[in-house]
Every structure is written in structure tokens, then in C-alpha cells.
């Protein structure tokens, strides 16, 4: 299970991208952000060669 991001880490991530956060906002963001890091049963079988840019052709192959 992935370790959840803390509010401090989230604040630092946004600061590194020059995105200011109001006080206390990182604490409010953390649950939602961490909820997206779900365990995916297909991840372990994902082939090394798969890249993210070929999805349109995958759609055509799977009509």
C-alpha cells in the first residue's frame, strides 16, 4: 500500500510549482489526493513496453 502524502508534502509540492496555498488548505486537500492512489490489480502485469501515447490505436483495435 502506497504511503499517503502528508499535508506538508502536498504544500511543498505545490510550492515547488509556484502555486500558493491558503493556510490549512493542504490539510483539506490531502484526503482527496490520497484517495486517488488506489491499488490497481492490473499494475503488476503491465508490460514494460506499454506507453501512454498509443491509446487511440488501442481503441481502434478493441472495437
Amino acid at each position: 500500500m502506497a504511503k499517503p502524502l502528508s499535508a506538508e508534502v502536498i504544500e511543498a509540492m505545490l510550492a515547488a510549482q509556484d502555486i500558493p496555498l491558503a493556510p490549512g488548505r493542504a490539510e483539506r486537500l490531502a484526503p482527496g489526493v490520497n484517495a486517488l492512489a488506489v491499488a490497481d490489480p492490473l499494475r503488476a502485469g503491465l508490460a514494460f513496453e506499454v506507453d501512454a501515447t498509443t491509446y487511440l490505436s488501442a481503441l481502434s483495435r478493441n472495437k
Binding site: L5, I10, M13, L14, Q17, I19, L21, R25, L29, G32, V33, L36, A37, D40, L42, R43, G45, L46, V50, D51, A52, T54, Y55, A58, L59, N62
Partner: peptide, 23 residues
Amino acid sequence: EAGFAIPAAQYLEVLRLRAAWLD
């Protein structure tokens, strides 16, 4: 704001998984 807290590798891995889920 929430989107800036998503690691790039997580984003790209989710996109890489898309074809497997289509299957």
C-alpha cells in the same frame, strides 16, 4: 490545487494502464 499534488509518474502509470482496462 489538488491536481498539482499528483506525482507525474502516478499520472503516466494510470495512462499506461488504460489499454489493459480496455481489454
